[in-house]
Nucleic acid binder design. Sequence first.
DNA 1: AACGTGACGAGGA
DNA 2: ATCCTCGCCACGT
Length: 126
Amino acid sequence: MGEVSSGSFQRVWNVVAVIPAGCVVSYGQVAELAGLNGGARRVGGALAKAPDRGSLPWHRIIKADGKIAMPVGSAGRQEQIRRLEYEGVVVVNGRVDMQKFQWQPDMDELIWGPLGFPGTPEDSDL
DNA sequence: AACGTGACGAGGA
DNA sequence: ATCCTCGCCACGT
């Protein structure tokens, strides 16, 4: 079974994996969700060393001010922008409007995950 | 074991 | 808005 490791990098990857498409989160935000307070810089390192960057939505992580972190002109930066726009996230001048696209996870998502819990009835009414 | 590094963040100039 | 400085701290040398 793909048991979750308690390594800090693994924890970061676990958090990143549940970020919904069409949203962005800051490095610091991911750090907090991963239990690495003040560890925003560690998040970048974790993403760079992710074993499955093809499937991990690393592109949804940007700076707190909305700017793309990767160096201008780098292949990674272009790839990130391409993926974000593909999801409908508007990137203007290497920058994203955090007011519109920053993900704000609620408790349900943090506890049960983005897909909810099997068998849990949805209380769409009220 | 000390030292430098980094896909950050906040604050000041 | 841009640039610089400092704090942050796990990781690789």
